[in-house]
Nucleic acid binder design. Sequence first.
DNA 1: CTCTCTCGTTGCACTGAGTGCCAAGATCCC
DNA 2: GGGATCTTGGCACTCAGTGCAACGAGAGAG
Lengths: 257, 257
Amino acid sequence: MSSSSAAPAAKPPMRDALVAAAFQLFLERGYEQTTVDDIVALAGVGRRSFFRYFPSKEDVVFPDHERCLADMTAFLAESGEADEPVRRVCDAARLVLRMYAENPAFSVQRYRLTKKVPGLRAYELSVVWRYERALAAYLRGRLTGRPDGTLRADVIAAAVVAAHNNALRSWLRSDGKGDAGVAVDHALGYVQATFGRSARPHPASPLPEPVSAPTPAPSVSGGERAEHPDDVIVLVTRRDAPLWRVVQEFESTLGRA
Amino acid sequence: MSSSSAAPAAKPPMRDALVAAAFQLFLERGYEQTTVDDIVALAGVGRRSFFRYFPSKEDVVFPDHERCLADMTAFLAESGEADEPVRRVCDAARLVLRMYAENPAFSVQRYRLTKKVPGLRAYELSVVWRYERALAAYLRGRLTGRPDGTLRADVIAAAVVAAHNNALRSWLRSDGKGDAGVAVDHALGYVQATFGRSARPHPASPLPEPVSAPTPAPSVSGGERAEHPDDVIVLVTRRDAPLWRVVQEFESTLGRA
DNA sequence: CTCTCTCGTTGCACTGAGTGCCAAGATCCC
DNA sequence: GGGATCTTGGCACTCAGTGCAACGAGAGAG
């Protein structure tokens, strides 16, 4: 078998070599100042092979979004009726964060690049849009029959993406220092508090346990499943809200169908 | 002065001729099957002039978004402290709708085009993104000092855009039949009910304008700060979340600096 | 009236992304 | 060894977009 020695990876060596060469040139020369011919020359491969692995020059900057999008789609597809939809899409968003957090250095470099190059920003937008549509499609399925089903699905999906990106960008701006998971959890918590309600009928579980925190990780945890009946509901309302509204919120929060 | 006779417009005749020629060819031949040379040949002008009026081939499909974006920016800039921010951005979004509603036939044709051509969808996304950033920038200015100012600004801007687009697209899908204004008002009413609150100390003014929203306004709504000492905080976490995370959420929610 | 200065328009040549086609080499299976 | 198949590379082509310089019409000065 091929030894996992110095070379980058095993499965698609050429692809990774192209990404490495591309980023090296992009960083030292700039994106638009680098031609595809420069990349393939540095990588030592034929120009035609570049476009075999990447449909366009922009794709080489986002080499793993396609896989991540597939993961997210699968994650949403394996969701059951028991899952609370808003929580589910928030968890799906965390998949994207995890991908960024896997390679902080790479992500920060790419962020600097996309911030400067309008063409890359536009490309990133189209990628983000596909994530958002995946979330919205899932939510539409879960909210069919509800009063403003598709409207709410679209708005919630947009809110989740915006919150995720807000936290992600602030993390990237700080050069990947700090815990991205915490920031994203906070941002998604805001969205969840705004739109979410747990489907669990368990009413009484007032406060989380002290927890000796064996897991410093806020449990981003990609493919988690249904086994979280132990949520704690916290709800923000005005004190001047009529009581019936509070009760209504409360009831709908703890799991109407 | 030049008479406003039969011709489309007066100021830039060449620009309009290019738009007309482009759409004629796009509709009968398809976007990607039409080259810039085809357009300029039909319009009877030099190829170089095309790129004088439109930075790229895609721009000819959205000839008036630049102006609309400037209008929106101006509209937001002339806003005073007295305006309720969420209402203001909703009104700003209505400016975009108005532009679409001015030429229903044109808008529907363009919608069909952008729906089919991936490149145009990507371009439209970048345009929409600029609208969203304009809204978010305004909201950030209005929410500075608030607990999660920039987060809330980004999320609200995204929600407004999503709601607007939801209604707009459904109107476009129906060939421009029906009242687009009503649909958008309803969608924006949902957003306003979700995020909005009157900045006025007047407690009893649920919906000032005739937004056509007799909605009971679920107003889930995140946490306001200083001028609302009467909030009740409700927080959603997992039971297995470490306590430090809960405390952190709690503090950041009730607006520490 | 003519010269000139300017501005809008145009043609031309060039770069670079992306594609189709086919040849050359590697691999696998028999 | 002898295909069949897949990957890679090279070549030529289309088309978007840009820089440059020339051309022509209108405005103003003499």
